[in-house]
C-alpha cells in the first residue's frame, strides 16, 4: 500500500458517518414469505444426461437437416455449453428487473467500461446497465414494461465453470438464423429463458424472463441477445441495424 492509499484509509476512519439505525424490525415487517424452491436438485451428471436426451429429442423434431450443428454452434456462447430441456424450472418473476440487470449507467459510461464496441440500434436506449460478466444491457421502454432488451456479453468474461443453460419448453421454436454471416438462433413461442448453472447444477443467476421472443447470435467475441415482442424478420432487421 502506498502512502496515498494509507492516507485514504485513515481518511475513511475520520469521516463523519451517522450512527447506523437498527433496521431489523423494519425489514422483518416488509419480508414476504418465500414459497417453494426452484433449485434444480438432480446431480449434475444426471441432469446433463436428462438434458442430453431431451436435447436429442428436440433436435430430432427439427426439420432442417443441418439445424443440429448450426444450432449447437450458434448457441455455444463463449465456451459455455447450452442444454435444451423441455421442463421449465419454476422461476419466480423478478420483482425488480433492474436488480437483475445491474448498475444503471449512461451509454457513454457503459462504452468506456465495457472494453468492447457496444452496439446499439438507431434509437437511443431508455436505460443502460452494466451487469455481471461485463454484460451491457440496453433497455427500451421501462423496467416495468420492456419493449426491447439487448444484452452484449464478451466471451472472455464468461466464467468457464458456469454452464449457460438455455431452458426452453417443447412449445418453443428454435430456428437457426444468420446475422450478417454470424450464426444465431431465433427462439419464439412458449416461454424460454437462460439460466447460469454452477458446477453443482444450481442456478446462480437467471436472466430477465420476459414474454418476448429472443434472437441469439455471436460475433467477434461478443454474445448478443435481443429480446422483445417481435417476429423473426423484425428481430433480424434490428440485429443488422446495430451500430
Amino acid at each position: 500500500m502506498t502512502e496515498l492509499e494509507r492516507a485514504l484509509v485513515s481518511l475513511g476512519h475520520e469521516l463523519e458517518v451517522p450512527e447506523a439505525p437498527d433496521v431489523v424490525a423494519a425489514v422483518r415487517a416488509r419480508l414476504e414469505p418465500r414459497r417453494g424452491r426452484r433449485t434444480i436438485r438432480a446431480p449434475r451428471s444426471l441432469a446433463v444426461a436428462v438434458a442430453l436426451v431431451l436435447l436429442a429429442a428436440l433436435l430430432a423434431t427439427l426439420a432442417i437437416p443441418d439445424a443440429r450443428s448450426a444450432l449447437l454452434r450458434a448457441l455455444h456462447l463463449g465456451g459455455a455449453s447450452i442444454e435444451l430441456v423441455d421442463e421449465l424450472p419454476e422461476v419466480p418473476a423478478e420483482p425488480d428487473l433492474e436488480l437483475t440487470l445491474g448498475q444503471r449507467v449512461t451509454l457513454a459510461e457503459a462504452r468506456r467500461a465495457a472494453g468492447f464496441d457496444v452496439l446499439r440500434p438507431e434509437e437511443q436506449p431508455d436505460a443502460v446497465y452494466l451487469g455481471d460478466r461485463g454484460t451491457v444491457w440496453l433497455l427500451y421502454g421501462t423496467p416495468e414494461r420492456v419493449r426491447l432488451l439487448l444484452a452484449q456479453t464478451p466471451f472472455h468474461s464468461i466464467d468457464p465453470e458456469l454452464l449457460l443453460k438455455k431452458v426452453a419448453a417443447t412449445g418453443t421454436q428454435v430456428e437457426p438464423v444468420t446475422v450478417e454471416g454470424a450464426e444465431g438462433a431465433f427462439l419464439s413461442g412458449d416461454p424460454h429463458f437462460l439460466v447460469l448453472l454452477d458446477a453443482q447444477g444450481n442456478p446462480v443467476e437467471d436472466s430477465a424472463r420476459l414474454a418476448g421472443n429472443v434472437l441469439l447470435w455471436s460475433d467477434g467475441g461478443i454474445a448478443y441477445r435481443l429480446e422483445g415482442d417481435f417476429d423473426r424478420e423484425r428481430a433480424l432487421e434490428l440485429a443488422v441495424s446495430l451500430r
Binding site: P18, V27, E32, R34, D198, V204, E205, D206
Partner: peptide, 30 residues
C-alpha cells in the same frame, strides 16, 4: 451513506436493499 451523503437516503437504501436481497436470495450462489 458514503455513496449518498444523506442519512435518510442511506437508511431507505439499506431497508430496501435488505428487502430486495431477501427476494433475490434464490439466485444467490450458494
Amino acid at each position: 451513506y458514503l455513496l449518498t451523503g444523506s442519512a435518510a437516503d442511506a437508511e431507505d437504501a439499506v431497508q430496501a436493499g435488505f428487502v430486495k436481497a431477501w427476494a433475490a436470495l434464490p439466485r444467490f450462489r450458494a
